[in-house]
Design a protein around this nucleic acid. Sequence first.
RNA 1: GCCGAAGUGGCGAAACUGGCAAACGCACCGCACUCAAAAUGCGGCGGGCGUACGCCCUUGUGGGUUCGAGUCCCACCUUCGGCACCA
Length: 813
Amino acid sequence: MAEPYTPQSIERKWQERWAAQGLYRTDLHATDRPKFYALVMFPYTSGDLHIGHWYNFAPADAYARFQRMRGNNVFLPIGFDAFGLPAEEAAIKHGIHPFTWTRQNIERMTAQLKTIGGMFDWSRSLATCYPEYYKWNQWFFLQFYKRGLAYRAKAPANWCPHCQTTLANEQVVDGACERCGTPVTRRDLEQWFFRITQYADDLLDFSEIEWPERVVVMQQNWIGRSTGVEFQLGVEGRPDLHIAVFTTRIDTVFGMTYVVLAPEHPLVDQLTAPEQRAAVAAYQEQARRQSEIERLSTEREKTGVPLGSYAINPFNGERVPIWIADYVLSTYGTGAIMAVPAHDERDFEFAQRFGLPIREVIRPPDRAGDAPLTAAYTGPGVMVNSGPFSGLPSEEGKERLADWLEERGLGRRTVNYRLRDWLISRQRYWGTPIPIIYCERCGTVPVPERDLPVLLPEDAEFRPTGESPLKLHAGFVNTTCPQCGGPAQRETDTMDTFVDSSWYFLRYLDPHRDDVPFDQALATRWTPVDQYMGGVEHAVMHLLYARFFTRVLHDLGLVPYKEPFKRLYNQGIILGPDGQRMSKSRGNVVNPDDYVRQYGADTVRAYLMFLGPWNAGGPWSPQGIQGPWRFLNSVWELASEDPPAPAQPDARAEADLRRLMHRTTKIVTERYASFQFNTMLAELHTYRNGLQRARGRVSAALWDEAIRRLLLLLAPTAPHLTEELWERRGYSGSVHLQAWPTWDEALTVEERVNLVIQINGKVRDQIEVARGLSEEQVRPLVLERPKVQAAMDGRQVRKVIYVPDRLVNLVIG
RNA sequence: GCCGAAGUGGCGAAACUGGCAAACGCACCGCACUCAAAAUGCGGCGGGCGUACGCCCUUGUGGGUUCGAGUCCCACCUUCGGCACCA
């Protein structure tokens, strides 16, 4: 009787031994093998590694191990995303300094992470809250600033009038301050931006990356490129004024019955007639009070106020009223629109509410001319009521009207994006200080590079006011101007943590360098990342910012490529046993540590990989983990003790086992490579079943080879178990340093196959035949079958469909 | 509303390029081992009819293409995810 499988002691033993041997320290300078940079999205230092982390890291680690055994020099780093709001909130709530809180969490999470048994290279770990890291955020900021890619402008922030502080979006709950419940308003503050819009078009080029289609689509929607025309409207009685509007439907311009400006539009004052002043001012005030979220809600009924002035349509000289309404955004296009209610749903709704005229100018092919419009028609059609352009197809009309405007210098074709510049200012303590100094005499002065890092002072005070402690820290704020030496103040805002995560993959290569942000030679050799693995929740922000950042680095000559992550894979989400998203309030949270204690990390890894397709996720079943547990136990038993060799090996059993061995090797290899871990493990189950059948019936040499393969194929998934068995069976070296097994294609196929016989598409019989028979060879065999004779019932064969080695379909009638 | 993904046994799922639907596993049932239980092993396990050889039905719904459809096409229903007045 073999000793039982005790994962706890085995796993501890190998984790210690691997660390002592430096088994997972990647030699980044090795040139004997191709490099492979595998990357997982670094965890936020929340304090606890939850099942979602395991679901990302364990299969990702198996994939990295597979790539390593296949002969690649694999680098799989790990680190911590360590700045951000929760640390600050913990500081206020528990009276603990963000630094302490974060450091403790890093320690705890590091210990948890090590139980996964991953091939992380801990010698190159990093955390973004250390000056050696964030110094380079500041350095990048200065490079961006030099190139005009960082600028300061007024931007609205969420503002709590009661707490007198700005709030992050996460701190706004249902439009109210999470701390005191006061409705949140907007307040304009001077804040810092990165000019990502300059790269909008370039970011739409996905040709060099292999990413999930849906992520690409999300980014495309986010960037939101739309082509159209911007043109000028005259103002009645004010030849000095013009209103610029943007439209994608210039073909509908003869249907313009009014014009709308955003409430914040700079021309509102000049365009407001005296009798409308009070109403307009009141509307503007109301719009200002409303938060962005409320204002953007589509549920709301549309509101607006006429200015009492009129715009002139350049195409026909018609005068139309000018309104302000908050359904027009000041931040998109020109902040003003031509309203065509007949062909735009929003304008239609507004016109109906305020009794404005609705004039049809595009006729759909299937519509009679006399029926009144009951809804906006937004499709293409033939232009009507459009003066000289009537009768043109609308698509052609777009071009003609654009030409007409451009010829007269009244407008031009242009492109707009939904994408806004990246607001990086946070009115918070726990982040990278923005390296800017404000001097009364010299204005905005960047901190000289030699003075970096601008250190985050540790002796800050945390008060529950929500105000950034940096603002109250005299020693930090007050400084001298690097240009004139006079008194000056530091910028007290810190950077968005997405800056940290935009380039961490480069820092991993040499995380403690003090002279450069990253080693350029290593970066040229190792990046871009070959395979990035993480949750789809980062489909837009993080991944888009990193792509932008990398493009800037490219233009700065720091890296020779534009895309940071060549391939991306999104794992799904692990749900609670009830099939719902895990949450503390539902009480369905699965703690991975409990299962690791009970079954060991290898079983947890195998179960996470087996429970469903990796990109789909699914419910965690406390019973389902029994499957992988039993499987690993049976592997343990098979490999621990060899059966007595038979006096005479069974030739049939040997042939079957050999074929199964090669077949399994092939399929398992393909499945690892394509992230199909669930079916990869199903294949190994089948292999295990075959081994149990063959046990004691095949030669000792073949048995040993079959078990050896089992361990190799399973090693990426269950690294501890296989390493232990590898050692016990007397093989030398680590199982994880072995070459991946190969297979002989000819040995993967059966020489006899089951041929299905269908009659009129229904399965009626099957025969076992040699592989590779021709239709002529098969036909008589099929026709003589009694079942076929019976089913044919004397009728004629009209047609025979033969799929070699699969089926014969007789069409009779 | 728009964009995207997906609907298959009691459950998680599998099915390469249109070719035996339900591999692999969980749960369950029966048997063996046991004083007993657990663990383990063996067998069964979509539905209906039939003593049986077997026959019929079944991949969200309704149509279509095809010798043949879970897979392709059209319409619809449901669920999940993203965006949400971007002119």
